[in-house]
Simulated scan of single mutants.
Amino acid sequence: MSTLPNLRNAVRTLTADTFEEVALQVFHYQAVHAPIYRQYLSHLRIRPAQVNRLSLVPFLPIGFFKHHQVVTGNPNIQTVFESSGTTGTQTSRHLVADLGWYDEISTEIFEKSYGSLSDFHLLALLPSYLERNNSSLVYMVQQFIAKTQSPVSGFFLHNVDELLATLKKLVQQPDGRKVILWGVTFALLDLAESKNDLSFLKELPELMVMETGGMKGRRREMLREEVHAELTAAFGVKNIHSEYGMTELLSQSYSNGDGIFETSRTMRILLRDINDPFSVTDSPQRGMRYGGINVVDLGNLDSCSFIETQDLGRFVGDTSYQFEVIGRFDNSDVRGCNLLI
């Protein structure tokens, strides 16, 4: 039986060729040492020893994070991340045993996608998340801001004037760094539709706008194409980048445009039949191109690495390494961090 330190080292040295092998090691470890997951497998009458392919691994419905402590082993919990949810809904709680591990994984994923954080100024417009003190997104972006080592990187709650002044300063005093404006979708739309003159942003050729989804009931839900068209026009950029992540995951995926996400080294997407949650495929070559999104997150060694989300998605192209989020199941809660339909 693998041990947690051995699994952590295996994840650190993970490659695309070894992903399934390591994922199965993690499964067999969590099937024994994760009480809630072990009970779930028992109710399904699953014999873990007979699970020898990734597509045969049962995925834990994400709702378990709302009503149970989903942990593997008996870890010392450093923090609890909580989903934003909406008024009157039960929120998810992710018990995190190693913040340094989360920091390591999220930084590696971002820098592999975009380059060193020290090459950026990061301006974060995340008002709804900053109003809470237990957001995984705020924690991650806070670590990214520190790694930029930039005197102008920071959070902007409602102080749009200060944000615009900072952007103008970066236009007037360029230093070769790229600029990320990272925002929750409704806040980016509010800025785009404000009476502020944003035309000067066209003079920031290295500006990157990153939306992290979420209307939080502040605005009507919009098609992704509508949102991106409005934001590209307002901010003078060619495309809008997106982040796919959630409270229950430690890994993320990024899109550099058109809502097409690339899976990261520690994450893999599988699709399940919308009428049969136990019919799962890990490849578009096997016929199913649309379905419910199941996530393998090998960062979740201390909780559960196999999560059945309430997102609907599709594979893009001939591999499972690119995917698109196309909606949510009708009976699922509206998530604070969800990506746009």
Score class of each variant (00 low, 15 high):
V334S: 11
L123F: 05
K66T: 05
P75V: 09
F19H: 01
V32N: 05
I145R: 06
I269T: 11
F200V: 00
I77C: 11
N294V: 03
Q25P: 01
N196H: 15
A233W: 06
G259P: 05
A229D: 13
F155K: 03
L191S: 06
D282K: 01
V32R: 13
K168S: 12
V11Y: 04
S136K: 03
G154W: 03
V96H: 02
E262D: 15
T185R: 03
S150L: 08
P174Q: 06
H228R: 10
Q25R: 12
V96L: 13
S116R: 12
A34Y: 09
S283Q: 09
M1H: 10
V141Q: 08
V80S: 11
R8D: 15
V80F: 06
Y37R: 02
L137C: 04
Q78P: 05
I145K: 07
N196A: 15
R38T: 14
P205M: 07
P35K: 07
L201M: 15
S84E: 06
K238N: 14
K216V: 10
G115Y: 11
E230G: 03
D276Q: 13
H158V: 04
V71E: 08
K168T: 08
E226D: 15
R224F: 00
N52M: 03
T185E: 09
D197R: 00
L339K: 00
D17I: 01
S92H: 07
L44N: 12
L167T: 04
F144P: 01
V209L: 13
V138D: 11
C304K: 02
A16S: 13
V334F: 10
A124P: 02
K238T: 13
I260L: 14
P35M: 09
Q310C: 07
F278C: 02
L170S: 11
G327A: 14
P174Y: 09
G176W: 08
L191K: 04
T3E: 01
E206Q: 15
F186E: 06
Q30M: 06
F186W: 12
H158P: 00
Y102W: 08
S2D: 10
L137G: 08
L125C: 04
T263M: 07
